[in-house]
């Protein structure tokens, strides 16, 4: 029975994966560049939100500074590839190492304390990094940012078209989803579910609660850092205004709307909420005026989403769906 369900699950994932892979083949016409770029942004945001889903939905912690990790990864890889002229993979490695180090340094002291110290620490970290991005002109280019960042490349393989960029971003995202799903379904995931059930019981099982939270936080910081490296090479330009508290809030909104103890929910929320300001990429009929209104009210929509979710469906999309299935199951 469960084996059969497992097969269906795999089949469904395979179909979704194949669907995602062939999208660039069907996106043609004058808008193709724009649409593929928007879809790459969707993948990049989804990668960050995947990390936040592990942190918020499984480890029960909130980060208000993930835009800063995103920026750290973007600047690290931009600097290594553009200013130092090193290969893209070296830039990616720099992004991973830097964000991992920053994640551990931030999480270790704040997660040893009870309560929402991590949220506070990440909020401060985000502001400090935003200022650092502006002031460290020698590396970041200051308020003007860095432009002319080379495309991603792995050996002879160059990701220099919108199609290739799309495949790069979504390929990395699929890999990250696989890693995250394995963690959630494996021992670390079981420990985190235990933590939800009983903190005392978890300690009595010899599980280092702080250690697990620190590792989840570091992993989520690295996911954001990798997303940053992808962003830098896809857009070719980074500037400090991108990595603001505003973005951190949007990312948290996606994770909260997506729901707890789920990866699919937050991923879906990331896709939908990222597309709102780019609705014209999906619905070509939308006029410029409508788009202006949507983009002006974007932040308000996200704020409203957080309030509605917290008030009426604290489990988010995933929690609401679970509720429907559980109730349906009991009715039988």
């Amino acid at each position: 029975m469960s084996l059969l369900r497992e097969h269906w699950r795999k089949l469904a994932l395979l179909i979704v994966g194949a669907g995602v892979a062939v999208v660039p083949l069907f996106v043609t016409g004058t808008d193709a560049r724009y649409v593929l770029k928007v879809l790459s942004f969707v993948g990049i945001n989804a990668l960050i939100v995947l990390g936040l889903a592990l942190l918020f939905g499984y480890a029960g912690q909130v980060s208000m500074g993930h835009a800063a990790f995103f920026g750290l990864g973007a600047y690290a890889s931009a600097w290594v590839t553009k200013s130092l002229g090193l290969p893209w993979l070296v830039g990616l490695a720099a992004a991973v190492l830097l964000t991992a180090a920053a994640g551990i340094l931030l999480a270790l002291p704040s997660l040893r304390l009870k309560g929402h110290y991590l949220a506070m620490a990440t909020l401060a970290f985000g502001e400090i990094m935003r200022i650092a991005f502006v002031e460290a002109k020698g590396v970041t280019g200051g308020p003007d940012g860095l432009s002319g960042i080379p495309y991603a490349s792995i050996g002879p393989l160059s990701f220099d078209t919108p199609q290739m960029n799309y495949w790069l971003v979504w390929g990395v995202l699929v890999l990250a989803i696989w890693l995250a799903a394995n963690i959630v379904n494996g021992r670390p995931g079981r420990s985190m579910r235990a933590l939800h059930g009983s903190e005392l019981g978890t300690m009595a099982s010899g599980i280092n609660i702080t250690g697990i939270k620190v590792r989840v936080f570091t992993l989520s910081a690295v996911f954001a850092g990798v997303a940053g490296a992808l962003y830098a090479s896809v857009v070719g330009f980074v500037s400090p205004s991108t990595f603001s508290l505003h973005l951190s809030v949007i990312l948290v909104a996606m994770a909260v709307l997506g729901g707890t103890r789920s990866l699919a929910g937050p991923l879906l929320a990331a896709v939908v909420l990222t597309l709102i300001p780019y609705a014209d990429a999906i619905l070509p009929g939308l006029s410029r005026e409508v788009m202006t209104v949507i983009q002006e009210w974007e932040a308000d929509v996200y704020g409203l989403v957080i309030i509605i979710v917290i008030l009426f469906m604290p489990g988010g999309i995933a929690g609401a769906l679970r509720g429907v299935f559980v109730r349906g199951g009991e009715a039988k």
């Binding site: 890693l179 995250a180 394995n182 494996g186 995931g189 079981r190 099982s205 010899g206 599980i207 590792r215």
Partner: peptide, 13 residues
């Protein structure tokens, strides 16, 4: 888990 840990890397891969 007390004896065999909750390590991330083997689980993730």
């Amino acid at each position: 888990h007390a004896r065999s840990g909750s390590s991330f890397t083997p689980a993730a891969l």
